[in-house]
Design a protein around this nucleic acid. Structure first.
Length: 321
DNA sequence: GTCGGTCAAGGTCTG
DNA sequence: CAGACCTTGACCGAC
């Protein structure tokens, strides 16, 4: 038997006025003549984002969901080049701790997916440095939440820079310059434009990083469509993780825009996949990446209730028979 | 309130 | 080598 748990991403289509990603651009920031006042405004936005995150987490628990992706936009302009003197944690420490306590009390799995501007293999030192700072922000947030920092940030390899092999080697080289605390945060995901499952396995095995398998990306970009023969290696990359293996599930929007996420999940495709891995692992956490966010998860759960090949555990988890 | 345009970022593609 | 486009949710001004 394999226990499957479902999660959703960073916002709710059901809760109203609950954005955890309100923002201020640097252009807006500069328009405010009083810099201190502008920083206070950033802090008010961050507090609003965290208050809404707590609302979202309560909605998550109430919906019997145990797995949630925090947005990486909780604190606007954190570690922006012109705001390096701003201590962005201190003014929100109380809320971060409250959220962390809630997460622990309800045994939620939370993680982040920093955006695609985190490029650890960039040949440009400034870009690399800014990427480290972005990851450090994630580190500090988790630390203030008092959550174990191991394997909490999913990222992609980065750019191809016109030479894929060289870019992979570049990742390995710069990995040595990544502070240990930040290395431990990282999971790597195969993407849909540059780096395949095989590329990820090469890096993950070499650097001992858990591999987050994105099935949709694999369908969009692969050397060999047969992912099954790599499944054991994917599982193995999680051997030293305190967390269960996790993967990403989404469905193509259409044949024409294959790479875009559809509103909902194609449950047939999803279950065909699950039946192939059934029994190979005790548990798997599947992050549902759909335009309709939590609504897509709820729809999926309704469909699952009517299936005879599963044993429903609660709102968002089930055993595969 | 609804709309289309704009904002950010770095990479990648086009001309 | 310049400029458009990609992606995302939020935001903004116009009506």
């Amino acid at each position: 038997m394999t226990l499957v748990r479902l999660g959703y991403v960073a916002m709710s289509m059901e809760l109203k006025n609950a954005s955890p990603s309100q923002t201020m651009t640097f252009t807006q920031f500069q328009k405010i003549a009083d810099r201190d006042a502008a920083i206070r405004k950033l802090e008010r936005i961050a507090r609003s984002n965290l208050t809404n995150t707590l609302r979202l987490l309560k909605h998550t628990v109430a919906s019997e969901i145990h797995f949630y992706r925090l947005t990486s936009r909780l604190i606007p302009l954190a570690y922006h080049r012109e705001l390096l003197d701003w201590d962005f944690i201190m003014p929100i420490k109380d809320l971060l701790k409250e959220i962390g306590t809630y997460i622990q009390e309800h045994q939620l799995r939370v993680d982040f997916h920093p955006d695609h501007f985190v490029l650890l293999n960039s040949p440009n030192k400034d870009v690399f440095h800014q990427s480290i700072l972005t990851l450090k922000m994630h580190y500090l947030i988790l630390k203030a939440m008092k959550i174990d920092r191991t394997h909490r940030c999913v990222i992609h390899v980065g750019g191809k820079y016109m030479d894929k092999e060289k870019s992979l080697e570049q990742f390995i080289e710069t990995w040595m310059d990544v502070p240990t605390g930040i290395q431990k945060l990282i999971m790597l995901e195969n993407d849909d434009t540059s780096f395949t499952l095989e590329d990820m396995l090469y890096l993950c095995q070499k650097l001992n990083i858990p591999l987050v398998f994105d099935y949709h990306h694999h369908l969009a970009l692969h050397q060999d469509s047969n992912w099954q023969r790599h499944w054991d290696s994917i599982v193995q990359s999680w051997e030293h993780s305190p967390l269960p293996i996790k993967m990403h599930i989404s469905s193509p929007k259409s044949e024409k825009s294959f790479r875009h996420h559809a509103d909902y999940i194609d449950s047939k495709l999803f279950f065909d996949f699950l039946h192939e891995i059934k029994g190979s692992i005790p548990q798997i956490d599947c992050m549902i990446e759909a335009k309709q966010k939590d609504k897509a998860l709820f729809k999926l759960m309704e469909e699952i209730k009517n299936r005879d090949d599963v044993e429903v555990v609660d709102g968002s988890s089930f055993n595969l028979k």
